[in-house]
Amino acid sequence: MNELHLATRQKEPEPIRRGFGMGLLEAGKANENVVGICADLTESTNMHFFAEAFPDRFIEAGVAEQNLVTVGSGLAAVGKIPFVSSYAAFNPGRNWEQIRTTIALNDQPVKIVGSHAGLYTGADGATHQMLEDLSIMRAMPNMVVLAPCDSVEALKATMAMAADKRPNYLRVTREATPVITTDHTPFQIGRAYIFRDGRDVSLVATGTMTAKAMEAAKMLAKDGLQAEVVHVPTIKPIDYATILKSAEKTRHVATIEEGQINGGLGGAVAELLGENLPTPLLRVGMNDHFGESGKPDELLKHFGLDENHIAMAAHRLLMDHSNHKH
């Protein structure tokens, strides 16, 4: 079952932000209108690859995230394709209104990149572990919201953003995480992908949690349960058809995300199932609380986002809705 050309052999883990950095470099080579702006986190957001290759197309805005995105809006207004990067806690955390007015409503195709999202940010603690970005960006009209699962997909997402005419938000993370896709795995904005076929329960995951869902599916298989893993790299516009088709097949859906379930992927899937195909649903993620300092693995375990917890959640979902035959 590898029509998707997923990685068959264990590869070295790599930070998702690196995929963005390499993708921006490629996009910059392909199109001279691509420009980069950063708010004093150039290396940290991996924009330095681009900045070093194209110093004339790189702008250092200093620690000023409101300016970051509004300068981006102005660059887009004169035909540039601006990528604006900082940490997700500030971009879009701090500058959401500027994005709303000068980018989304004003329809300027600015490419907003929020790094260090989620619990994988680790030791920096709750202030820097952005968990609300998917929720707040998903609420914004005219905004495309992307959360790739690994560095390889992040590269493709970055290239796709450069070619897309709409405003986009890309969520990337700090820590090295498993690489589960390959250069040949398909990626298109707006598409969800079945990374593993199953019939008993759908694990609908995004970002770093897709790799965890794949691990959980392996554990569930040992327990005799066939979990289908639906990878959703585009939170908005969400791929209704793929998610509904999986839900129709398995009749049990768990969403998994490294962020707030209120309004995030969990919110999006609850909305679409509630309106189209009421289905037993369990949302795994941050349930209305903040993170804290710690090692990423400790934090994921503590907040119920490791593969064990995800597998247990699937069991719970199936037990609570006992019409399932197993």
């Binding site: 420009v35 702008i59 409101q66 300016n67 509004t70 300068v71 981006g72 809006s73 102005g74 660059l75 887009a76 207004a77 004169v78 035909g79 540039k80 601006p82 500027q98 007015t101 000068t102």
Partner: peptide
Amino acid sequence: GSGLSQAAGMALG
């Protein structure tokens, strides 16, 4: 508060 930054972006571009 956002017009001057947009103008700056345009001027840079």
